[in-house]
Amino acid sequence: MNAFFVMVHRDLLLVMRRKSEVLTALFFFVIVTSLFPLGIGADTALLRKIAPGVIWVSALLATLLGLQRLFASDYLDGTLEQLALSPRSFVVLVLGKITAHWLVCGLPLLILAPMIGLQFDLDNASLETLLLTLLLGTPVLSLIGSIGAALTLGLRGGGALMSLLVLPLYIPVLIFGAGAVYAKSVGLDVAGHFSLLGALLILALAFAPWVSAAALRIAIE
């Protein structure tokens, strides 16, 4: 457990030393969501309807941007090899890196989302649901994404390839995340959506770190 916290602390420290990379992904999220009203028109009723989908899709893309850096620098300078050789469980260390990624790339989206929601004229109930879905959903994005990042580590055109691998796997999260907000807005019960998002989170938490660790071992072999 100690190894886990050390890993999270180390990754957060590295991010703090180079803030611009993280801020880029966040500004990307803000800019992409702002492009939609410009492309579609400022019809308030329409914007309110597409807001959950737009915010969720932008969140998927913003997470992808951060994923490219998840293992890349450690792979290049050989740190990853040392981590794999260390007597500590490699899976726990990988989970630590994923957690750090979520804290840096997932959690800030939650803070920004209400602001974006206001731009799209979402009411308070929808905003609340949106935040809760993001809270449950973004860790799943980081977990599943880590598998794609590990598989494409050090490859030519790795970033584009990773989005091809990872985006289809993100679809269930997108459906239930955006679907919950939509269901709330038309007065349906959203308990089912949250149960399913929770189930996805548990599944991803149970399997993704192991799969990522296996994929990383293949990459550094």
Partner: peptide, 12 residues
């Protein structure tokens, strides 16, 4: 997982 999520999305 994808199949059922798409199915439920569709019915909603």
């Amino acid at each position: 997982i994808i199949y059922f999520s798409v199915k439920w999305w569709n019915t909603l």
